[in-house]
């Protein structure tokens, strides 16, 4: 017979985890379940009459060519933002890694944009690129570019991509710099002694060694572009012109809060919820295992 050790049961552990559980239930599980429920309804704005329709809201979405276009647009937008912001951050970090004097100042300055709220970042870009009053359209005119992002969807998309990427550079920069500084100096020095120049050392040693960070940042940036760029888009283009900058999360807002189509909007958020769950799973299953901190 095994002797089992019995501890007197105590409420203490339950009490200690309770706040966490309660917060999760109230702020995550409850709203999420509401969204799922709402996505099965077709309802008027005031909630006076509602009809339970199972998956019809989803069916309407996937038959809507506009929604599918939004899907592709979001993927394009996220990819562009991730590549642009990670690429710039990588270059900046590679240089910052070599800076000897004034490194702290340089780093601090680079981190600043991260402290700017998305809506403010958007407002800054709106001022700089206002077709009538902005400084950039004025400069662009000299090289023959007629800038009007109110009318030109491509230009509007470019603008929000730049604004969103700019905002994220600081974050990526921090991670890249930390990753580069954790590479043992002896490795780099050995390569230098073998005659590898800075570019060669970067591509052959530094870049492969920081690849876990790159993968981690890729997921983070994708999530950022998918969900946190709402403020920028709202401030810069409000999804226009002709929907050319409407990404999934903006469409949720627009259909739900502007159009008061709660069922359709809820169905879209459920789809987004599934997407973010998928991304998180990828991050935990794949990335966490490979990143060497």
């Amino acid at each position: 017979m095994l002797k089992r050790v019995h501890f007197p049961t105590s409420a203490l552990p339950y009490l200690l985890v309770a706040p966490q559980i309660i917060i999760t239930l109230i702020f995550f599980i409850w709203p999420a379940s509401q969204a799922v429920y709402q996505s099965f309804l077709i309802e008027d704005a005031f909630g006076l009459s509602s009809e339970f329709v199972w998956f019809e809201n989803f069916q309407i979405l996937f038959e809507d060519s506009q929604y599918l276009e939004t899907f592709w647009r979001t993927i394009l937008f996220s990819a562009a933002v991730a590549v642009l912001s990670m690429g710039s951050a990588l270059i900046l970090a590679a240089f910052a890694d070599r800076v000897v004097r004034g490194a702290t100042t340089y780093r601090t300055l680079l981190i600043w944009p991260y402290a700017v709220a998305p809506v403010l970042a958007g407002a800054l870009w709106v001022f700089m690129f206002n077709p009538t009053l902005g400084i950039f359209p004025y400069i662009l005119e000299f090289i023959g570019i007629d800038w009007n992002h109110y009318l030109n969807g491509g230009q509007a998309m470019t603008l929000v991509i730049f604004a969103a990427a700019w905002k994220q550079i600081a974050y990526n920069f921090l991670f890249y710099l930390a990753a580069m500084q954790s590479i043992p100096r002896s490795l780099i020095e050995a390569a230098a002694i073998d005659g590898a120049g800075p570019v060669r050392r970067f591509w052959d040693h530094i870049f492969p060694l920081i690849s876990p960070t790159t993968f981690f940042l890729l997921v983070i940036n994708a999530v950022y572009a998918f969900f946190d760029t709402f403020g920028i888009i709202h401030a810069v283009t409000q999804g226009g012109p002709a929907n050319s900058t409407t990404i999934l999360v903006y469409k949720v807002f627009n259909d739900g809060f502007v159009g008061l189509d709660l069922g359709g909007s809820a169905a879209q958020s459920v789809i987004l919820m599934i997407l973010v769950i998928a991304m998180t799973v990828v991050q935990f299953r794949y990335v966490e295992r490979k990143v060497e901190y």
Binding site: G240, A242, N254, D255, G259, L260
Partner: peptide
């Protein structure tokens, strides 16, 4: 739904 219809017309 005219708020959305106006958006459609705008687009």
């Amino acid at each position: 739904n005219f708020v959305q219809v106006r958006d459609v017309i705008n687009e």
